[in-house]
Amino acid sequence: MSPIEASPPGGQALLSVHGLSKTFGANPVLRSIDLTIERGRVLALIGPSGSGKTTLLRCLNGLELADGGTINAPGELPLDFTTPPTRSRLNALRDRSGMVFQHYNLFPHKTVLQNVLEGPVVVQRRPRAEATASALELLARVGLSEKTHAYPFQLSGGQQQRVGIVRALALQPQLLLFDEPTSALDPELVGDVLRLIKELAADGWTMVIATHELEFAREVAHEVAFLDAGTILERGHPSQLLRNPQHERTRQFLHRVLHPF
């Protein structure tokens, strides 16, 4: 289940974000975010609660409408948010990415397999037989072959989240967005999901992951960005940023996360 295009060694931008901003009422949640998402690379977003990680991810797939700045994909017209973009341009942005939600958001009235097929068969109109075969393959890979006809309520949180990941993968997106994929899980279930995401990274998927799991970020990410009050305060190689941060705010945050007591 590697991405459709073989991932080049990196350095090639999939999306570049310039001056992205978003205000809720009088609350500026994203302030002029600049970001490049490179093919085949994993970017981890860390930062305190309320710093804007979720909002940034949601703006990247159009779930939230940014109110300023641009998102560019090479070879396409820039998507400028200073005036609201057209529906079709937003759809193009959305269709580029698959998202994994903190609370899974599986469809409770559909079985595991139906959850996964809803995108490829119902929306993308791929042939059912072919889509089913690849869905079953994906489910087997995440260890859920036994559960294809189960309903979400019959699964553990970790299993539900793996279905959530498979549902996103089945869309064959260029980019995977993860919003704290393990923070709703019981501690003993976190490992399975993180291991799966690590495997996807090794397969060459391009990913942006908001997470509080710093050790995981260090292992899996090519780059870590520290978000604070709606700005990217610093970004860099995981070992550099996590071991030797340049900003006092970053240091305080890391200290709080690593030494909660």
Partner: peptide
């Protein structure tokens, strides 16, 4: 949101 995400 999940439905939007899968392109519905």
């Amino acid at each position: 949101e999940a439905a939007y995400m899968i392109g519905m």
